[in-house]
């Protein structure tokens, strides 16, 4: 337990935290541009199926309430991404996103599309997110200092990402056992999805018609989900898991029509060490520039004849 605590509360850099702030707030801003919230505003009361904190509301909020929340949330998310008064704009954007997300999950089915994004933003709410790469830092409104302040929000977000996939796999094992991958479950999932569409879905049928492929896909999903906590122990495995998650959500979109881009983006934003990537790219670029500058000195002398002067 001490080891876990030491890992969570290890030192970090303001740049890594800022990269996560920029990424997650940008993703939230994009999510808040969707028209679905206004479409479900003022829904007939008998169709309202509240979940969690939405029980506090008697029915779906009306259009006149949803529109200002969406506008304020969207603007706050953009400002938080830019790092303008981020200690206030980020929690405001998150609260608006939470309420609007709560609306979409109160239609009779638990909606998970934005859950990981919202949960990964939780550790950022009280964190010094704008000490780097922000308008706040440019304006001198921040006091960068102790590296201990920047590590725990990032490490907590990492645990949330790893946990979300692990618990998805865990729920499959608990509710269905190995039959989830070893039985024909994946074939039926894909056939049901294809049959529910106006025209058959060829991606789904391609997999469902081949039992071995359906087993392989199911086993790969289970392996990816249950193996995700590896990213906490082995930093080098992170790019592979990011690629796996993107591929997984792309496949889900192609076969089941489920749009989980926000979750895939959250995985990439949290798992990739963007400042290190930028530094490496700059280093490579500087090295290339340096090599280009050094080249004339090392190149052999040009022995070609001088071009003739124009007559």
């Amino acid at each position: 337990m001490r080891r876990i605590e030491r890992w969570i509360f290890s030192a970090g850099t303001p740049e890594r935290l800022a990269a996560i702030r920029i990424g997650l707030c940008s993703a939230l801003a994009l999510r808040l541009t969707r028209t679905v919230y206004l479409s479900i505003a003022g829904q007939p009361h008998s169709l309202y199926r509240p979940l969690s904190f939405m029980h506090l509301l008697h029915s779906m909020p009306p259009w006149g309430v949803v529109l200002p929340i969406q506008v304020v949330g969207g603007v706050a998310a953009v400002l938080a991404a830019l790092g303008w008064r981020a200690r206030h704009t980020l929690p405001l954007a998150w609260a608006c996103g939470l309420l609007l997300g709560g609306m979409t999950t109160s239609l009779g089915k638990v909606v998970h599309n934005d859950v990981l994004l919202l949960l990964c933003m939780v550790p950022l709410l009280p964190a010094p997110v704008s000490d780097a790469w922000s308008l706040d830092a440019r304006a001198g409104r921040t006091k960068p200092g102790d590296p201990m302040r920047y590590g725990w929000p990032v490490q907590t977000a990492l645990i949330v990402v790893a946990g979300s996939y692990f618990f998805s796999g865990f729920a499959k094992l608990v509710n269905s056992g190995p039959a989830w991958a070893l039985g024909s479950n994946m074939r039926w999932v894909l056939y049901i999805s294809s049959d529910s569409r106006p025209s058959p879905d060829h991606w789904s049928l391609f997999i469902a018609d081949r039992a071995w492929l359906a087993h392989l896909v199911a086993a790969s999903i289970l392996l990816l989900e249950l193996g995700f906590p590896i990213v906490l122990f082995w930093k080098r495995a992170r790019p592979a898991f990011v690629a796996g998650a993107i591929l997984f959500h792309l496949g889900t979109w192609l076969t089941l029509g489920l749009d989980y881009w926000a979750q895939a983006a959250t995985v990439a934003i949290v798992l990739i060490d963007w400042p290190a990537l930028v530094a490496r790219a700059r280093g490579r670029s500087n090295a290339t520039k340096g090599a280009a500058e050094a080249r004339p000195r090392t190149q052999p002398p040009d022995l070609r004849p001088e071009p003739r002067a124009a007559r």
Binding site: L51, M54, V110, A171, K172, N175, W180, I192
Partner: peptide, 13 residues
Amino acid sequence: WPLTRWHLFSAVR
């Protein structure tokens, strides 16, 4: 919600 049980296609069809 948003704290969830992560029941995503967890029941065998």
